[in-house]
Amino acid sequence: MSYLLTPLLLIVFVIGLILAPTPIPLGVPLMALSVFLLIATNRHAARTVARLRKRFGWLNRAFCFIEDRAGPKIGRTLKRTRPRG
C-alpha cells in the first residue's frame, strides 16, 4: 500500500508547494498533510525528516511546536522523527 501512497503524497506535496505563494490558502495545509502521511506510512520518509530536523534547528523547533499542540495521534507520529543524539 505504501508503494501506491508514496508517489501520490509526493505529488500532493508538490501541488502544495506550488500553491503556497498564491493567495489561495491551500498550499501549506496540503504540504503539512502530505508530510504527516508520508511520515506515518513510509519509514524512509520518516528517517529523512529526522535527518532534516537534526540538520536544521528551525525545522526541529517548528516540529516540536506542532508536536506539543497536536492531538495525541498526530503528536506521536511526529515525535517518531525527533533527531537522536
Rank of each mutant, 00 (worst) to 15 (best):
V14H: 11
R61G: 15
P23M: 02
A32Q: 03
F63N: 13
E67K: 06
L30R: 09
L4N: 14
L52I: 13
C64Q: 14
G85H: 10
K54E: 04
L26P: 11
K54P: 12
P72S: 05
K79T: 04
F63H: 07
R53S: 05
L52W: 04
G57Q: 11
H44M: 08
L19V: 15
R76L: 01
R82Q: 06
G75W: 06
R43H: 07
P25N: 01
M1N: 14
A45Y: 03
I66G: 11
A40Q: 04
R43D: 10
L59N: 09
V28P: 12
P25A: 00
T41M: 03
M1R: 14
R84Q: 07
R47Y: 10
R80P: 09
V12I: 15
V12K: 11
A62P: 13
V28L: 01
K79N: 11
G27M: 01
V49Y: 06
T41P: 04
A40T: 02
A50N: 06
P25W: 01
N60E: 09
R47W: 07
T48H: 15
R84Y: 05
L52G: 14
T22C: 01
G85C: 04
T48N: 12
I18H: 11
V14Q: 14
I39G: 01
L4Y: 09
R53I: 02
H44P: 11
L17A: 10
F36H: 03
P7V: 05
L4W: 12
F56Q: 10
G85E: 03
P7K: 06
G16S: 08
P23D: 02
I39H: 02
I18W: 13
N42T: 00
T41H: 07
L52E: 08
L37H: 04
A45W: 00
L52H: 06
Y3S: 14
R61K: 08
G27T: 03
T22L: 00
W58L: 07
H44Y: 11
F56R: 06
D68C: 13
L38Q: 03
K79P: 11
T81E: 05
F36T: 04
P21L: 00
T6M: 12
P25Q: 09
T41Y: 00
H44N: 14
P83A: 00
F13N: 13
L78T: 05
P23A: 02
A40Y: 01
R53P: 15
F13C: 15
L78K: 07
L17P: 11
M1Q: 10
I74K: 13
I15Q: 11
P72Y: 06
I15M: 12
P21W: 00
V28R: 05
K79E: 07
P72L: 02
R53F: 05
R84L: 07
G85L: 01
L33E: 14
L30V: 04
S2C: 09
V35E: 00
R80A: 02
G71I: 08
A32V: 03
R47L: 11
A50S: 04
L30Y: 10
P7M: 05
M31Y: 02
I39E: 01
V12A: 10
P23Q: 02
R47K: 14
